[in-house]
Amino acid sequence: MSNSIAAIILTKNEDKHIARCIRSLEGICDEIFVIDSFSTDRTCEIAEALGAKVYRNPWKNYATQFNYGVYQCPIQSEWIWRIDADEYLDGNIGMAVKKALAECSQEVNGIYVRKRIDFMGRPLLHGGWYPSYHLKVFRRGHGDCENRWMDEHIRIFDGIAITVAEGNQVDDNLNDLTWWTEKHNGYAIREVADMLLMEYGMDAKAEEVQPKFFGTEEQRRRWLKLKYIKAPLFVRPFINFFIRYILKGGFRDGKEGFIWHILQGFWYRMLVDAKIYELKKRFDFDKERIKTYLIENYKQCANK
Rank of each mutant, 00 (worst) to 15 (best):
F242W: 15
G121A: 11
K212R: 10
E48C: 12
E288G: 04
K99S: 05
E87S: 03
R155T: 13
F238K: 10
K304P: 07
A100P: 05
L279M: 12
A6G: 02
L135W: 09
L226S: 06
D15E: 14
Y187G: 05
Q106V: 13
K205W: 12
Q210K: 15
D118V: 10
C29P: 05
L124R: 06
N168A: 00
D172I: 03
N175C: 05
L247G: 05
Q106D: 14
S132Y: 11
I290L: 09
W59V: 01
E152T: 15
Q219Y: 10
V113G: 07
D158A: 13
R252L: 11
A96C: 05
G250P: 00
C301Q: 04
I111N: 09
A274Y: 12
E78R: 03
R222W: 02
A204R: 15
T292Y: 12
Y228L: 09
I162G: 08
G51W: 03
K255G: 01
D158C: 13
Y228T: 12
M195V: 11
G121K: 13
E217S: 04
F138H: 09
E278K: 10
K304A: 07
A102D: 08
F33A: 05
N92P: 03
M195L: 14
K280S: 08
P211K: 14
G127H: 11
E31M: 03
R139I: 10
W81K: 01
Y268G: 06
N168C: 00
A102H: 08
L101W: 04
N3G: 08
E278I: 05
G121Q: 13
L226A: 07
F66W: 01
Y268P: 03
I189Y: 07
D86H: 09
V108E: 12
D172V: 02
V70R: 00
R20Y: 00
K227T: 04
Y68K: 08
K248A: 08
S24T: 11
Q300V: 13
S132A: 09
D86M: 08
V108T: 15
L177M: 03
G91H: 13
D15Q: 11
